[in-house]
Design a protein around this nucleic acid. Structure first.
Lengths: 212, 212
DNA sequence: AATATATCCGACCGGTCGTTCTTATTTAGT
DNA sequence: ACTAAATAAGAACGACCGGTCGGATATATT
């Protein structure tokens, strides 16, 4: 194996810190998250954090990467394990709402919170968030395009528009679920996309039945 | 008349401060906005602000009220000047996108930014934002219900769901327009709602023609 | 056994935060 | 003119911010 105990310990600490950072930042934002609070809630000294990241911005960037990995594991992974086409689109959206409803993160959605926090502040963090968001959008559009290619959506479908609509239902869910009734919000988020896909898809058997 | 010069001056200062506060908070959030920056960008001393609001939280609450007034004037006002029904719904959404596209506020949308900022932080600010958001949702639902009553939308329409969908397109526009291509975003936001309403409304003459 | 490396801590720095206190200026009422 | 009230400025406060530094500890290499 040849594992270096020192490096292993560092890696363990690093991921533990980043997991907590993602969690805290989902509620307070990446700027609202202070190194003092982060260190304290980990039972670690503040200066210890600087052994792993040379500045707060570096830690913020690392936190974003960690959140991306979590998103990939929790939302994109499950979707990729279902067959291409409208079923995969639906699975992706459903996994997203499950993620919000499962209250995995105290703030609901790391990306929604941080992207609104930084969308008007120039800098490396904003640029990275914009990249991540662009990649997410491209992924969603690819899924929609695949469904069109498979004939599960009409040939003339506006791919980018449909992707926009699906993502909009997700973003709105992240926001409303914390300020209004969560259950009603999740029902709307799921039903909105399901209705929309069902209205477009010529084969009704590909999508679940009732409004459930 | 009976104008008190002292009170008049105070009122003038107060609205000037709040206008700037709304503008800054739309970009940095209500917490990210610091009293020092606010005072400096107004050419006013920091302690002078405390003559008008006893604490930062009080100023934050006043800023929310000012943002509500601005929203009412810019988005709700124009909508109420068009006839009830689907045309009013469309006018409301259109005025909202115009507001974003006009870059009135540097951060795009005061409410989107602050509601995401505070949706996981207990306190008076969050409660006030939740109230405002609930009132906005109720207003949108009332507009949709009116359209149903007028027969401009089918009788079985899920009012709350449709209101959710329309608002979701708006929220998504506020977010995406700052991180991705703004023009494409606004086109999607407008087209999404227009398509949706056109698909539901039995009288096509009530809504504008092309995808424009 | 000695040395090098990675991790982590406690103490401390300058700066900014929200807030308070004291004081000066302007205007209204008498 | 004189008092009272409202509006402002200035200086200073304790708390916390991100960040630095020297040293202590644990692990690997030789």
């Amino acid at each position: 194996m040849n594992v270096d105990g020192r490096l292993a310990r560092g890696q363990r600490t690093r991921t533990a810190v980043l997991d907590t950072a993602v969690s805290l930042a989902s509620a307070s934002g990446l700027d609202g998250l202070s190194l003092g609070h982060l260190a304290e809630s980990l039972g670690v000294s503040k200066s210890g954090l600087f052994a792993h990241w040379r500045s707060k911005e570096e830690l913020q960037l690392a936190t974003i990467d960690r959140a991306v990995a979590q998103w990939q594991e929790r939302i994109i992974g499950p979707a990729l394990r279902t067959p291409r086409g409208v079923r995969r689109i639906h699975a992706l959206h459903d996994a997203r709402i499950d993620f919000y409803a499962g209250r995995v993160l105290p703030g609901g959605c790391f990306f929604a919170t941080t992207e609104f926090e930084f969308n008007a502040r120039p800098g490396a963090v904003r640029d990275r968030l914009a990249e991540v968001f662009a990649a997410w959008t491209a992924f969603l559009e690819r899924l929609v395009a695949e469904a069109v290619e498979l004939g599960e959506l009409p040939a003339g479908t506006d791919v980018a528009l449909l992707a926009y609509e699906i993502d909009a239902f997700g973003i709105a869910a992240a926001m409303r679920s914390r300020l209004l009734d969560p259950e009603v919000t999740y029902r709307h988020a799921r039903l909105g996309v399901l209705n929309h896909l069902r209205a477009l898809c010529p084969d009704p058997a590909l999508l679940p039945e009732g409004p459930s």
